[in-house]
Amino acid sequence: MDAIITVENLQAFYVLEVMGERKVIKAVNGVDFAVLRDEVYGIAGESGCGKTTLLKAIFAALEPPLRIFEGKVYYYPNGERVDAFSLAGEARRKLRWTYISYIPQGSMSVFNPVKRLRITFLDFLKSHVGGKREEELLTLAREHLVRLGLTPQVLNGYPHQLSGGMRQRVAIALATLLKPRVILADEPTTALDVVAQRAVLQLLRDVQKEFRSTIIVVTHDMGIHAQITDRMAIMYAGRIVEEGLTKDIFARPLHPYTRYLIQSLPKVGDKNTKESAPGSPPSLLYLPPGCSFHPRCSEVMEHCVQEIPPLKKINESHWVACWMREG
């Protein structure tokens, strides 16, 4: 199978100086995985589990206080392996948006609020596609929108004139203008209502079909993962605790945390009481010893408090980090 992104033992921490005291927030704490060509890969986890940081690291958008302490991220443009962190200047600029693109959380920040969307699209194209007249670029943008089933009229308006769902879809259209091989989407459906969510999912599916791109979706909403991803990883406190085919994870969740996530989902037609995992996620500043989930786990054993469980292969595609599955 062809990998398109690989992440190896990635450790990305925020280093803060607060009142002369050094604090290290271990947002991504030893993460390994590979994303394959032409698949939709999901990363699930609650706020503060490090999933947004992971996306930033994959995009090689490293601004202080975020620092890479260890590990590598590799891209595979034209079949050759490229270290994402060693890319600089022109080489990085070239790969961004053509090989890999990023849709940040909250689509409002993508657009300049005082400019018509046409200008935003044109500026974007001008800086990446050389030697074309404005008219041609505009046609390019229009064709792209039509291809994704959006009306090209949105280009004439301002960002605030669009509804949240429409704005999110236009943001996705902008990020996919140059037909990137990999699209990173950070919480693309959060803060949208179910109908707008459905529109965004429909669009992501169309993008994937149309351009054969790989999509990495980060969201805490398990319903979205079930609807769109092929494979997924569950993150908890900076680590991946389970990875597998989406249908396997939903059918046979192995980690107690994953089980809580799936079993607590309400369904129409089911009034039985659902329980959330007890407690709250830990602060990334002060991680509990051993397995980070042990204070909330109903099946905690002595071993869990002492040692961090490694990610262990259960079968061909299913991995889990839990001492219950050891041996």
Partner: peptide, 25 residues
């Protein structure tokens, strides 16, 4: 019916892939 259909159901075996029209508010 449309709202009910649009719930992202947490079941990968039952995906909602029917295309739909979206209009602005």
């Amino acid at each position: 019916k449309l709202l009910l259909e649009s719930i992202p159901e947490p079941d990968p075996e039952r995906r909602q892939e029917k295309a739909m029209v979206f209009l602005e508010e």
